[in-house]
Amino acid sequence: MPLLLINFPSFDPIALSLGPFAIRWYALAYIGGIVIGWLYARSLVKKERLWGGPAPMSLVQLDDFILWVTLGIILGGRTGYVLFYNLPFFIEHPAAIFRLWEGGMSFHGGFLGCVVAVMWFASRNGISILSLGDITTAVGPIGLFLGRLANFINSELWGRAADPSLPWAVIFPNGGPEPRHPSQLYEAGLEGILLFTVLAVMIRFGALKRPGLILGSFILIYGLARITGEHFREPDPQLGFLWGGLTMGALLSIPMLIVGVILIVLAVRRGAPDTAEAIR
């Protein structure tokens, strides 16, 4: 056993207890991601220079949208997990679908829920769907980063068995005796820090002036990051490896590569709108 092999620290999955009520780290990750993302989104909407004029949505509209996107994340994430990851179990135990505190959320389902929320809210409020999608995905890596940290704290979604010589391999308490890749931290770095940094730099250089460019870049880079992360992550036991030796997470990410490229190409070809179009 290597000298630097890491024994998993003893985390309590419950962050705060108030009598019979318990707040888990995973719930705090969702709350923190939404709140911090909302504050960051407000700061982007306020800066007209990033949009080439007034933002295509008001702060009031953005504040109203938070409830919509929160519902999209939760309902879509749970629906995606039920359909993509454990449908036979939930067919036999339908009541378990509503026991969210037991875990089980899917990013791809949550993302589709966000898409529905964006399209519905934008059409009802006369906002550009692509621009609202841009602002939503610009803040998305914040929640992804916090969520992956919560996965690590909960000792869930751990990685595949690692070479014993890997100095940062972790022995998870429910992952058997072998050292494993801390794949949750890999994904936190790729889907959170790296993705947020790339999108922030793009925004600084005027990407929001081309509706759909940030959205497409998020979809493309996330897909690449997720496929990379899945290479180190232990597949879900009820699914195992699927077609071509890929995991469900990798398979669901492949269409994102295609959609992301299409949105980026269309945004670049469309060009930046003039001031009048930006105000519209």
Rank of each mutant, 00 (worst) to 15 (best):
M202D: 06
A162H: 01
I127Y: 09
A55Y: 00
M57Y: 05
G52P: 11
T79G: 15
Y222V: 08
D64H: 13
Y85S: 12
L266Y: 10
P273Y: 10
I36K: 04
W38R: 11
S43R: 14
G249C: 07
N151V: 05
Y186G: 01
I153T: 00
T275V: 14
G113L: 07
G206S: 08
G245T: 08
L18N: 00
P255D: 13
I171C: 01
G249Y: 12
F152A: 02
L18G: 05
R99F: 14
F218W: 14
T197L: 14
F121S: 07
N125S: 11
A96F: 02
L263N: 10
L132F: 04
I262F: 14
Y40R: 06
A169Y: 00
A122Q: 04
F205Q: 06
R204E: 12
G223Q: 06
G249D: 10
F241M: 13
L149Q: 01
I129Q: 15
P20G: 04
R280V: 10
E277W: 14
S165F: 01
K47I: 11
G271W: 02
P141V: 05
N7M: 11
A27Y: 00
L239F: 05
V139A: 15
L224H: 06
I34G: 09
E230H: 03
A96C: 05
N151T: 04
P20M: 05
S131C: 11
M105Q: 10
H181D: 07
L16A: 04
S123R: 14
A276F: 09
L132V: 03
I227D: 00
L44N: 03
E191N: 08
G189W: 02
L195N: 14
G37S: 09
L112Y: 13
A278R: 15
F65A: 11
R226F: 05
L199V: 07
L28G: 09
P177N: 00
T70R: 05
A278K: 11
L144D: 03
M105P: 01
S128I: 11
Y222F: 15
Y40G: 01
A169C: 00
L75C: 13
G206H: 08
I66R: 10
I203F: 02
V35N: 05
P94E: 13
S131R: 13
I279D: 13
P88W: 08
V261H: 06
G76K: 09
G140N: 09
G133Q: 07
W120C: 02
G244C: 08
A267I: 13
I97M: 15
G229T: 11
V139D: 06
W68M: 11
I258R: 03
L44R: 10
F145D: 06
G244M: 03
I135N: 08
T137G: 04
L157R: 01
R280E: 13
L18K: 02
A122T: 02
V60W: 06
F84T: 03
Y40I: 14
Y186P: 02
Q184I: 03
